[in-house]
């Protein structure tokens, strides 16, 4: 881990960034800094650019203008410190592979092409499997698992890269309520152990309970590095008048769970 080098630096630093596909601008004038140990919930409507922002951070999509640094480096360099959990829908769920094999993929890297897995790799994989509570299922086929279990496999794979930053794209989509709670508890535990988290979700309610700060994205980004979601942020993001349910709600609802988890 490179904490010592980047201790006082941002994990991700985005300045005046525009990005999109051809003439279609999806992200406009984005400024974002991610501090170590943060747990950011990124919310916004579908098509608002959440996945696109992740792609830019991961160096999979070049920005049209502006700058982005990951761990003080270009995204292509810095992304090796990012553990990525893609959206559930991208996977071929019939793929014949065991749980342990998937998690082992986290130990691969472009710099270790001709090397076999080491004892250390093995130990890390077992440790991460234990973190996500799937050690006893490690020899099972991925396709035999439930949706929630599978999602935890992908989280373990991302953790096996020993990341500074964990990036999750809608990790609780298409999993049941209990699995959802389990996944959020797991993320909380991971964050406690020093891994910074950027979590993309459309689920405003759940996200507000667990995260440390909230960012709203719909083409442009509203982020103050705080947990409070203001009515103004929501209105700007969802482009329609938003009624927050109770008076003084942002502070009340969001602060209420601050300690419990």
């Amino acid at each position: 881990m490179l904490d010592h080098i980047h201790k006082n630096n941002y994990l991700v630093e985005i300045n005046q960034l525009n990005a999109g596909y051809n003439h279609d601008i999806v992200l406009s004038d984005i400024n974002l800094t991610i501090n170590p140990n943060d747990f950011i919930g990124l919310i916004g409507p579908n098509g608002g650019g959440k996945t696109t922002l992740l792609k830019v951070v991961l160096g999979l999509l070049a920005p049209q203008s502006g700058t982005i640094r990951v761990m003080g480096q270009s995204p292509q360099e810095g992304r090796r410190h990012i553990g990525y959990v893609p959206q559930f829908t991208v996977f071929d769920h019939d793929f014949p592979i065991t749980v342990e094999e998937v998690v082992k993929m986290g130990r691969l890297s472009g710099k270790r092409l001709f090397q076999s897995f080491t004892k250390e790799d093995h130990d890390i994989v077992q440790e991460k499997l234990a973190w996500v509570d799937l050690l006893e299922h490690k020899d099972r086929a991925l396709r035999e698992l439930s949706g929630g279990q599978r999602q935890r496999v992908y989280i373990a794979r991302a953790l096996a890269t020993e990341p500074e930053l964990l990036l999750l794209d809608e990790p609780t989509i298409s999993v049941d309520y209990d699995s959802r709670t389990k996944i959020y508890d797991l993320l909380h535990m991971i964050n406690q152990r020093g891994v910074t988290i950027l979590l993309v979700s459309h689920d405003l309610n759940v996200i507000s309970i667990y995260v440390k700060s909230v960012a709203c994205l719909n083409r442009d980004l509203h982020y103050h590095g705080e947990k409070e979601i203001t009515k103004e942020m929501l209105q700007a993001t969802y482009r329609c008048p938003v009624e927050l349910i109770a008076h003084g709600l942002p502070h009340r609802v969001l602060a209420e769970h601050k300690e419990g988890r």
Binding site: L58, G59, L60, Q76, R79, R80, I82, Y84, P86, V90, F91, D92, F95, I97, V102, M105, G106, L108, S109, G110, K111, L113, R157, T161
Partner: peptide, 13 residues
């Protein structure tokens, strides 16, 4: 074969 995006993020060729 399983997940090309993840492989790319790991800087595999």
């Amino acid at each position: 074969a399983f997940d090309e995006t993840f492989a790319r993020v790991r800087n595999l060729p």
